[in-house]
């Protein structure tokens, strides 16, 4: 497995001149390998977006190093690095640059001087990958939030990035839009083994990941598989994170005297346990 991205004891403060000011990111280290789906969870203001800005070179850490494709991210290789990272942000409207869907998907290609024929090809294939190929000439205000986010994903894919980063990309969407976007990401993963880093508030979304980083007040509090991280249970609740629905349900059922074995992350597990629990008596 080759390494795509890593943080090495990264610290960042928005006010480095103030002594002892709280750092937005404190001494964070992690590694993302090719083909993984990593989720970063944590309460509002825990430093998630700051980390994304550090990865994309919008901010430079005061301490520590960021490696992208094993190279240290510096001012010199910044633009080169950005071509390898696809990003989708929270607000669907505020990242739509082009006048129409196809113009928007082509934006990064234009910026990087991709020749015209190649651009047309890539715009069409990336839109097909997110199932938006029939919307080529649509204007953004005629699209739903979920559709806009899928176009944003296509715009990122057009550069053939090594990693796709979603910073709360589903936070402003309705349930249907959220499902659309998540399905798109899952399909992409199945087809291309694309490496994904998704920052999210939504625990159900985090459960889809291979590994979860749990941030609290700028520090990495825990890291591990969804099972490992969510087994922290009440600790997570204390730090402002909701537990997955199935876990909360399990807790409530147990509190009310239903005998269940273990903690359940997904509804399916819970249901299986529920309807077999009586046999085991």
């Amino acid at each position: 497995m080759s390494e795509i991205l890593s943080f090495n004891n990264v610290s960042f403060s928005y006010t480095p001149e103030v002594k002892d000011a709280r750092k937005a990111v404190q001494n964070v280290s992690f590694t993302i390998n090719e083909g993984e789906w990593i989720s970063i969870v944590g309460h509002n203001g825990s430093g998630k977006s700051t980390m994304v800005k550090i990865i994309s070179g919008l901010l430079f850490p005061q301490e520590g190093e960021v490696h992208v494709m094993k190279n240290v991210l510096t001012e010199e290789n910044l633009w080169e690095t950005r071509t390898q990272i696809g990003m989708v942000f929270q607000n669907p409207d505020n990242q739509f640059v082009g006048a129409t869907v196809q113009d928007d998907v082509a934006f990064a290609l234009e910026n990087n001087g991709v020749p015209h024929e190649e651009m047309v090809k890539r715009v069409h294939t990336s839109l097909k990958q997110v199932n938006m190929d029939s919307f080529l000439n649509h204007e953004p205000h005629h699209l739903s939030g979920g559709q806009k986010q899928r176009v944003a994903i296509a715009g990122a894919l057009a550069m053939r990035p090594k990693i796709l980063i979603l910073d709360e990309a589903t936070a402003m969407l309705d349930p249907q839009g959220r499902a659309e976007v998540l399905n798109t990401v899952q399909e992409l993963r199945e087809e291309t083994r694309l490496t994904v880093l998704s920052i999210t508030h939504d625990v159900e979304e985090a459960l889809l990941a291979d590994r979860i980083l749990f941030m609290n007040d700028g520090k990495k509090y825990a890291e591990g598989s969804p099972q490992e991280v969510f087994s922290l249970g009440d600790k997570l609740v204390e730090f402002g994170l909701e537990l997955p629905f199935a876990m909360r349900m399990t807790k409530l059922l147990k509190a009310n005297g239903v005998s269940l074995i273990g903690e359940h992350m997904t509804e399916e597990e819970l249901v299986n346990d529920l309807w077999t629990s009586n046999f085991n008596k």
């Binding site: 990003m87 505020n94 640059v97």
Partner: peptide
């Protein structure tokens, strides 16, 4: 919006 857009444009290599 302008701030978000500037960020999105820069990240996309503008």
């Amino acid at each position: 919006r302008a701030e978000d857009l500037a960020t999105a444009m820069e990240v996309r290599g503008y």
